[in-house]
């Protein structure tokens, strides 16, 4: 797996500067709510990638944390009338708590068994979302009030909404980058590379994996909570298994284990979903077809391939 270029790399700096310009400039050319949606799903995918990319754990139930946080944040805003930040915090706490319990149960298993357990647990959350009194069953939570960011900026203004989401996204991405490049991240990497060896060196692999799981769930919760407020909506789709599947798709499409890959993947999937919605084409078939092409042509995902190509070009130049 190719490491993400460090921030001191001049080329990487240029890339990051370019991305910053694009993200700041985008709302002047594109529909704000669409961009906000991209950012929410991008954060979802980046947080998912934290688990898959740096731990090698393929969870098939990340929609549970996304949806749970969406419901909790929505409920806090709508029924309790709490401010925006408190709603986000409650959403994050809910998904972190859920992640701790589910992680504890599933982390002992590996590979397909791990994926199946996370899926089964997520289906339980789906069932609860359907049955519990406060989730609104099939209607979901609707007309969630957005409130104000920091008590000052009206989030009903789409530009404010976009930039507040952007701040959250950049903050979370910085945290993810730090986690993967922390003292903790080093050990996580060792466990991903060779778990029995890490254990024989005296590291309790399961405890490290659990912490990564909880961090991932909490950040996914941040995405879910923000999405519920931004779209004034928390529905069963948020906790449905197909949402878990689509975040896997985004991550693999963009580039597993790269910092920006999941962002690119989310951008592609959300864009396709949005623009194909009116075309009358079968959306899922088109996305599926693109996914198959990607797997066949560039296995490392779009960003992964680009990085490998850049590295190759660089090592050609430097002897």
């Amino acid at each position: 797996m190719t490491p993400t270029p460090g921030p001191r790399d001049p080329l990487a700096l240029l890339l990051y500067a370019g991305a910053a310009v694009l993200l700041v400039g985008a709302p002047f050319f594109f529909y704000h709510l669409f961009l906000t949606k991209v950012l929410c799903y991008a954060l979802f995918a980046c947080a998912f990638n934290l688990l898959l990319g740096s731990c090698g754990l393929l969870s098939f139930g990340h929609a549970a944390y996304f949806g749970a946080a969406a419901y909790v944040a929505g409920h806090a805003a709508k029924v309790w009338g709490l401010p925006f930040e408190a709603c986000l915090a409650l959403g994050v706490m809910a998904s972190a708590l859920l992640g701790t319990i589910f992680g504890y149960i599933s982390i002992r298993r590996q590979g397909i068994y791990f994926a199946m357990i996370t899926l089964a647990l997520a289906q339980m959350v789906y069932f609860l979302a359907l049955q519990l009194p406060f989730t609104g069953a099939e209607d979901g939570l609707t007309a969630i009030p957005r409130g104000k960011a920091l008590g000052l900026f009206e989030l009903d203004n789409p530009l404010v909404l976009y930039f507040s989401t952007l701040c959250i996204f950049v903050g979370a991405l910085t945290l993810i980058h730090r986690i993967t490049h922390s003292t903790f991240g080093q050990i996580l990497r060792a466990i991903r590379d060779n778990e029995p060896r890490a254990i024989s060196l005296g590291f309790e692999a399961n405890r490290y994996k659990l912490q990564a799981f909880v961090l991932s769930a909490a950040l996914v919760g941040l995405a879910g909570a923000n999405k519920a407020i931004a779209f004034k909506l928390a529905t069963l789709t948020d906790v449905h298994w197909s949402t878990s599947g689509s975040v896997i798709l985004m991550t693999l499409l963009g580039g597993l284990g790269t910092l920006l890959g999941p962002f690119v993947g989310a951008l592609m999937v959300v864009t396709l979903e949005n623009y194909l919605a009116d075309s009358g084409l079968p959306i899922n078939a088109v996305i599926g077809g693109i996914f198959i092409l990607c797997i066949l042509l560039f296995r490392r995902g779009i960003v992964g391939e680009a990085q490998a190509w850049l590295e190759g070009a660089r090592s050609h130049k430097a002897p």
Binding site: M1, I179, I187, R189, A190, R192, N194, R197, A198, S200
Partner: peptide, 26 residues
Amino acid sequence: AVFASMSALDNVRVALQRFRSDNFAF
């Protein structure tokens, strides 16, 4: 049994981390 994606130096360093108390400090 080595950590394949890590440099030789990082392989040894990760073992040395065993004596540290900040291994969970993400």
